[in-house]
Design a protein around this nucleic acid. Structure first.
Lengths: 118, 118
DNA sequence: CTGCGCATGTGATATTATAACATAACGTAG
DNA sequence: CTACGTTATGTTATAATATCACATGCGCAG
C-alpha cells in the first residue's frame, strides 16, 4: 500500500457513495495537480484486486469496500435517491445456474429506494 | 417496432452473444452506410425499454433477450471462454436485502466457465 | 392543410478507459 | 556499495463508450 493508493482509498471512503473515476481525478488534482487518468485507474485496479474497493458496473463508479473480506463479490443495494449503498456479502445465489456452470465472479447490483427514501 | 429497430434486434439475435454497440454500428454501416452512434443507441434503448434486449453491464455489451418476458431483470451466466450467455429469469434473490429496501431493477451477472468449456 | 408527436438523420462533443513508453523507487544478489 | 530486476508512478496520446442538440421527415388527429 503506497501513499498514492492510500490517498485514493481515503477519497473513496470520504465520498461514502459511488464516485466516478474522473471525479476522483478532479479531487486528486485539486491537491496534487499532476494526477492523470492512468494514475487513478491504476490505483482503483489495485484496490479492487485486493478487495478494498468495488466497481459499481451499472454506474461506472467506484466505492470503498465496506467489509474488506478481500474475496467474494459483494451484493450492492443502491438507493437511486440518496445514493447510499448497502453492501452485503455471502449471499449464496439460489443456484439457478445452468448445469455445470462454474462461477468465477459475480456482479449483483440492486437499484431502488432505501428505507429512508421511500 | 420500426424497420430500424427490427434490424438492430435482428443483428443482436444473429450475434448470439454479447455484442458491443460500435460493433453493431459497424455491421449496420456495412449495409446502410449512414448509421451513426445515436442511431444504434436509440434503438438499443428502445429494445431494452420493451424488454427485448439487455445490457451486459460489466462488458458494456448488449444481447437479445432470450425470454421476452418484457419485465423483470434477467440473471445472466456468461462464459468467459466461448462467450455464450445463459439467461435465467425469476430467480428470487435470497432477500439478503437491507430492511425496507425497495428494489426497482437488478443487475445480476455471473462470469465463469460454461459446462462445455470447463 | 396545419400542427403535433414521434422516429430518424447529422454533426459535434462528453465521458470512461487504456496503450505505450519514460522515469523513479526499492529491494536483493553479487 | 553497486548493478540489476521488479514494481510503481509519470506523461502523452488515443481508444472505446455514450450523449447532446438541433434539423428533418413522416403519419395522423383535428
Amino acid at each position: 500500500m503506497t501513499p498514492l493508493r492510500r490517498n485514493v482509498l481515503a477519497l473513496l471512503v470520504r465520498a461514502g457513495e459511488p464516485i466516478k473515476a474522473y471525479d476522483l481525478l478532479d479531487q486528486m488534482r485539486s491537491e496534487d495537480g499532476s494526477a492523470k487518468p492512468p494514475t487513478v485507474y491504476r490505483s482503483l485496479d489495485f484496490l479492487m484486486d485486493v478487495g478494498l474497493a468495488h466497481k459499481v458496473e451499472a454506474l461506472n463508479a467506484y466505492i470503498a469496500c465496506a467489509h474488506c473480506h478481500d474475496k467474494g463479490g459483494a451484493e450492492l443495494y443502491i438507493c437511486g435517491k440518496c445514493g447510499s449503498v448497502d453492501e452485503r456479502h455471502g449471499a449464496p445465489e439460489p443456484r439457478n445456474a445452468p448445469d455445470g456452470f462454474e462461477t468465477e465472479r459475480s456482479v449483483v447490483e440492486h437499484y431502488g429506494l432505501c428505507a429512508k427514501c421511500r
